[in-house]
Amino acid sequence: MTGWRQPLADEEATAAWAAHLAASLPPSLMVALEGDLGAGKTTLVRALLRSLGYQGVVPSPTYTLLESYELPDRRIHHLDLYRLADPEELEFIGLRDLLAEDAVVFVEWPSQGGGVLPAMDLTLSLAGADQARRLTVEPSSAAGQAVCDALRAASPQ
């Protein structure tokens, strides 16, 4: 498995990269989002949803724990496990139902779901709180590797 680092100069660069990612996503994938408060995790998900044509509000899921988006040809869930006290609470959120259907699931603070959350296919790590961010992309399954290959084909380094 090989990942890479990608500088994102500003919000426009983030949006452009999110559009590449959106075009490379299979119907079903687990994506971990890593990065400190303010690193731009929700901003990245919002940019991806916009590139898929979603026009509605994309709020932070910190308090609701889960925001789900039904798009014409795919389903996206955005989880923030920051407030989870115990992985078993995922059952209470309805994780089992979420995973019963094809969906791309973005998970912030996935370590909080340890043991109960399925293995991640891809990890996106954001660093730098300035305008410019550094994004690290790391696959951890064949499905994740396929997304990386497609991304590289779409945006050569």
Binding site: L37, G38, T42, T43, R46, V57, V58, P59, S60, T62, Y63
Partner: peptide, 18 residues
């Protein structure tokens, strides 16, 4: 009108954390 991203209370909580 409504918040397009973080709620006001969430902004307080996250600022507190920072």
């Amino acid at each position: 009108g409504q918040s397009l991203d973080d709620a006001a209370g969430e902004a307080f909580d996250k600022t507190a954390k920072l």
